[in-house]
Design a binder for these strands. Structure first.
Lengths: 110, 110
DNA sequence: ACTACAACTTACCATTAGTAAGTTTATAAT
DNA sequence: ATTATAAACTTACTAATGGTAAGTTGTAGT
């Protein structure tokens, strides 16, 4: 808990402020959470996240790829099948997700 | 990393999905981060978070109070001076913030 | 009495999200 | 061989949220 926040690299989260806003962007956290259990195809992600739409999932996945947290693989060339997988950097967010889950579990259920 | 997400109590984050969306809401994370160092007055928060506006800070603080993560104290009755402070529940988010900071520090600076 | 400050509140415009329908290419069914 | 279905987007449009600026209320200082 030290340094404040002054953004340098646009769209790349190299500091606390940018990072928390990036992974906290609507759906992003749950997408990462979903991919923690292994690579998934587009429709598998849609199906495991109730409420998300095609449009926003596409947008968020593109952002995640751009930030280097997710990779996109073409399965079976010449078809439209793709697979999304966390990079090591994305996987390293597991500790953050675990910390959140622990906090949720320890909260008094008002 | 177990259970999925099905919201029961509206506006109260008792599960992973709601929680990550709540603390990831624009400015919320940084407000909590700012209050980690102790109680602060309204204008002190504004001054320590570059870019935030009165309107959004008011809105976010109200949400945080509603969720039981922050308390609002009237200082010096009959003036407008107030102070915001994390509740124990809010303070418990420190582990989450530390996990994020660690992740940021360990990332390769593209 | 005049000015400034603290903590909002209101009004308005810009950006982002949600919903639904359409597109493209490929395999499956009849 | 034609038709249908599916995967992964894309486009268009409306609703919700965020950003900017100005206004409000009450106290304090000079």
């Amino acid at each position: 808990m030290d340094q404040p926040h002054n953004c340098v690299t646009p769209n790349i989260c190299n500091n606390f402020h940018d990072t928390i806003e990036f992974i906290g962007k609507r759906w992003t956290g749950i997408i990462i959470y979903t991919l923690m259990s292994g690579p998934k195809r587009f429709h598998e992600i849609v199906e495991s996240i109730p409420g998300i739409s095609d449009r926003l999932l596409t947008e968020r996945l593109n952002e995640l790829v751009k930030e280097g947290l997710v990779t996109k693989k073409q399965l079976d060339s010449s078809t439209k099948k793709v697979e999304y997988e966390l990079t090591p950097s994305g996987m390293a967010l597991k500790d953050v997700l675990i910390a959140i889950r622990n906090w949720v579990e320890q909260r008094p259920n008002l």
